[in-house]
Write a protein that binds this DNA or RNA. Structure first.
Lengths: 120, 120
DNA sequence: GATAGGAGTTACCTAAAGGAAAGCGGTTCC
DNA sequence: GGAACCGCTTTCCTTTAGGTAACTCCTATC
């Protein structure tokens, strides 16, 4: 009867714990642009206007706002280089590596879903 | 996190394809409650008021609205049983299995992030 | 001196998300 | 007959997200 941990049936506690974790994650990541911005910067560090061009459709207001939010949440780092004029480079933080799995699964799902929609 | 599988350098095309996929996924899944509802139903099929109790904080209006959205996107199935009175049971569709990886990574990230926040 | 970036900010506006409260038609239970 | 539960809907409201356009400062370049 006693089963090993990995094959044990999922308990109610685990269910609601997962639920809480997903809700917590969404509290930080929710919105149209946060994850795309992080992904764009994981692909390569970029300057403000480069991100704008990469994520076509985003406005400078929203980009500035979301970059601040992501900085506060330690997912993005804003580097200022003392060139003349100063150049500012945004990059994904080391901590944002923890989001890679999320981004990969989400990307996979998005690709599969698009395929499904087209087929119908 | 076993990942090493012949990592060819990522091309620009792959980057923007991933970006597009993530944006597509968010177009369908964005919002405060969609993923939590799906997760709750993956955990076990439920009736309307059971979902309400599971996801404390959601209003009946939003739940009804999101259930319709998820039904239209084939992620949730609404079953009507001809009991007296009719009982209605919502369940995660077979297709919603494709979201399990997304939900798991998101749940993991949310749990880790909460831990990080608390530690600081 | 005009123009063209870069990196935003500001003001204004619309639409969508989300919440509170009440109600409603049905049924069972007391 | 009254209370309670189910599965919602309706109305009203506030908040947030997001978009547009204009404008700023600073520097480099023609």
């Amino acid at each position: 009867m006693a089963k090993t941990k990995e094959t044990a049936p999922i308990t109610k506690e685990e269910c609601s714990s997962n639920l809480r974790s997903v809700i917590d994650a969404l509290y930080v990541l929710n919105g149209k642009w946060k994850l795309p911005i992080v992904l764009s910067l994981i692909n390569s560090p970029k300057r403000f206007n480069e991100i704008m061009r990469d994520l076509e459709g985003i406005s400078p207001k929203i980009l500035a706002q979301e970059l601040k939010h992501l900085e506060q949440n330690k997912l993005v780092v804003r580097n200022v280089f003392p060139t003349t004029p100063v150049s500012i480079m945004y990059e994904a933080s080391a901590y944002s590596d923890t989001l890679k799995d999320v981004l990969r699964t989400l990307s996979d799902w998005g690709a599969g879903h698009r395929k499904k929609i087209i087929e119908e």
